[in-house]
Design a protein around this nucleic acid. Structure first.
Length: 375
DNA sequence: CCCCCCCC
């Protein structure tokens, strides 16, 4: 109780000791166990205008840098990630959980340990609650995070917080960026694929394509987060929280990555997206393009054997716009489209890959990442 | 960490 006295004395007698003690008890009650007596006393003292000294000052999230060390701030819970268990060397089971919090200046990820991670498990930490937070800053894989250690504070507060998740625009996403919040409209959703990781365990991966008013980007979802694709529909507007951007080692495109530290959720606001169609005359080999035009040629479906012994099919069509005409190879199921198409039908070919093909002419390959729309 | 750019 000495600590509590110390905190009371900072108030310089603005209220009686009895009232202070009562308010502290009420505060503890209010917080239904989310707050210890000392923190409650500090909150009550704060309510009565106790001035914080120097390094005790509350910070804003935008001011937190990798070198901030110990930080103290008030923020709103924006997302809660499931608690995980791990084994410590001493044989005990540790628990860890992450939440993303925001104030009016930005958002940041918190790491909660053991008892505080359990609050996630029991559902006591909910999106929308406001917390007084004290912890230390650490650099994580996808950006900085605040660890709430034993000496940290993680305590619900009545204080109002204007929370802002500041999201980047797609055109501003660069390789290596972490801590990314992106809003976009869903343009495409892949199936979930399984694969073997280097360590031999099974992994899951899925992709979505999202767009905003500045562009579009492929999003790769890993393992558990692939399940999120089942809840999403084309044209949903979504928010990706705490993703990171990495160049894939497949075709060196920067993709947004959604791992176990990230999530995707639907948002009310509609994100605008307009497909950027390239004039056929401007197509060069080795890029992904979307074109819009009229069918100006139709071929037959052909089956062929691939090197690995599997059978695939292909058909070819031509599409023309005001600037030119191009051959398009429709692979796999796309090949069947020739049966539905007629000359002069308006089509959109989205995300087809250009290459130098038959007779060294540029053609587009419509594979499983390509969408074809009959307008 | 995962994948297509294959046909004639």
């Amino acid at each position: 109780m000495d600590e509590i006295n110390e905190i009371y004395e900072k108030l310089g007698g603005v209220i009686s000791k009895e009232d202070f003690t009562r308010e502290v008890e009420e505060k503890v009650e209010q917080m239904s166990g989310l707050c210890d007596v000392r923190t409650a006393a500090m909150l009550v003292a704060h309510d009565h205008g106790a001035s914080d000294t120097g390094d005790n000052q509350l910070q804003k999230i935008s001011g937190i840098t990798p070198n901030s060390g110990n930080v103290k701030f008030i923020a709103k819970i924006m997302s809660v990630f499931p608690a995980r268990e791990f084994n410590r060397n001493d044989g005990t089971t540790g628990r860890v959980a992450n939440v993303v919090v925001a104030d009016e200046t930005g958002s940041i990820r918190l790491t909660l340990w053991d008892d505080r991670a359990d609050l996630v498990k029991t559902g006591e930490i909910q999106v929308g609650q406001n917390f007084q937070i004290a912890g230390y800053v650490k650099e994580g894989y996808s950006g900085i995070e605040v660890n709430i250690g034993n000496n940290g504070v993680f305590c619900e507060t009545d204080e109002k917080v204007e929370a802002r998740i500041d999201s980047k625009k797609i055109e501003d996403i660069k390789n290596g960026m972490g801590d990314l919040n992106i809003r976009g409209r869903i343009l495409d959703i892949s199936d979930i694929r399984t694969f073997n990781k280097k360590d031999g365990s099974a992994g899951k991966v899925a992709n979505i394509m999202i767009g905003d008013e500045t562009g579009k980007i492929r999003v790769t979802l890993w393992d558990e987060t692939t399940d999120l694709t089942k809840e999403l529909k084309i044209d949903d507007s979504v928010e990706i929280i705490n993703g990171y951007a990495r160049e894939n080692n497949f075709n060196q495109q920067v993709e947004m990555q959604v791992g176990n530290r990230s999530t995707i959720r639907k948002i009310e606001d509609e994100v605008e997206f307009k497909e950027d169609f390239t004039s056929i005359a401007d197509i060069v080999p080795g890029e992904s393009y979307s074109i819009s035009g009229l069918v100006s040629g139709l071929g037959e479906i052909r089956e062929f054997d691939r090197d690995d012994g599997t059978v695939n099919m292909v058909s070819n069509i031509y599409v023309s716009d005001d600037t030119g005409r191009i051959r398009i190879a429709l692979w796999g199921d796309h090949a069947l489209l020739v049966d539905q198409l007629d000359i002069d039908m308006p089509v959109e070919i989205i995300d087809a890959f250009s290459k130098s093909g038959f007779n060294d002419e540029i053609e587009l390959s419509a594979g499983n990442r390509t969408r074809i729309m009959i307008r």
